[in-house]
């Protein structure tokens, strides 16, 4: 058996070195659309992180019994199971948020990160490291998306989490409406990828 990576390494990989967004450009599809408001993004990110971590844990538990040829089906089933639970919880206890997120909670199923981590790591590692791997990939992903949403909400509406920010909510700041509209998401994501890649390259050189 391959020796498992130490937990610290797993954490670092998920958060920065192999960050799903700017290194692997994975899984932006299902979340980018709701990054125009920080609160929606936060709820979505928490859901995604939980689903990733728990799916990885479950996949890892079952890895010794699952026949290889049907492992994709099993993974999809497990992911869908957790997504449906999240969807039902939101519908029952936070209906307003459930309406805001619309179909995007369901789309976590096709999010490449969840499936990607299950396939790449959880399928061949012990449960606890798999859980950590899923958790930290989720956090690394959330952290990038939250950064995007903070930029978008601040520049577009002058608020963060609905709270008016000094300067940005005053008439001196001409609100960049385009930032809360879909094109703004593309520009914000591109800028963040650019920034992170440049920073990483500098770090690698020195």
């Amino acid at each position: 058996m391959i020796p498992t990576k130490p937990t610290k390494e797993i954490m670092l990989d998920g958060l920065w070195r192999d960050n799903p967004i700017f290194r692997q450009i994975l899984g932006i599809c299902s979340t980018l659309a709701i990054t125009n408001v920080v609160l929606n993004t936060a709820v979505m990110c928490i859901s995604l992180t939980l689903v990733t971590a728990l799916s990885c844990l479950t996949v890892s538990f079952l890895r010794n019994w699952t026949p290889r040829n049907i492992r994709m089906m099993v993974q999809t089933l497990i992911i869908a199971f957790y997504v449906i639970i999240v969807d039902l919880i939101l519908k029952a206890y936070w209906p307003q948020m459930s309406r805001n997120l619309g179909p995007f909670v369901g789309l976590i199923i096709t999010n490449c990160i969840v499936m990607g981590r299950c396939e790449a790591f959880a399928g061949s590692n012990r449960p606890l490291p798999s859980f950590m791997d899923g958790l930290f990939n989720g956090i690394g992903y959330s952290f990038m998306l939250l950064a995007i949403s903070v930029v978008r909400e601040l520049l577009g509406m002058g608020t963060i989490l609905g709270i008016a920010m000094p300067y940005f909510s005053t008439p001196y700041w001409d609100k960049w409406i385009i930032m809360v509209m879909p094109p703004g998401a593309f520009f914000a994501l591109a800028s963040i990828i650019w920034l992170c890649r440049s920073m990483k390259r500098k770090g690698a050189k020195s």
Binding site: I178, F186, F187, L189, I193, L195
Partner: peptide, 19 residues
Amino acid sequence: PEGLRGPGITLIIAGLMAL
């Protein structure tokens, strides 16, 4: 620019298209 190559520039173009 180096950091923008690949996905970065694709996203910016997509943004302009969305506009």
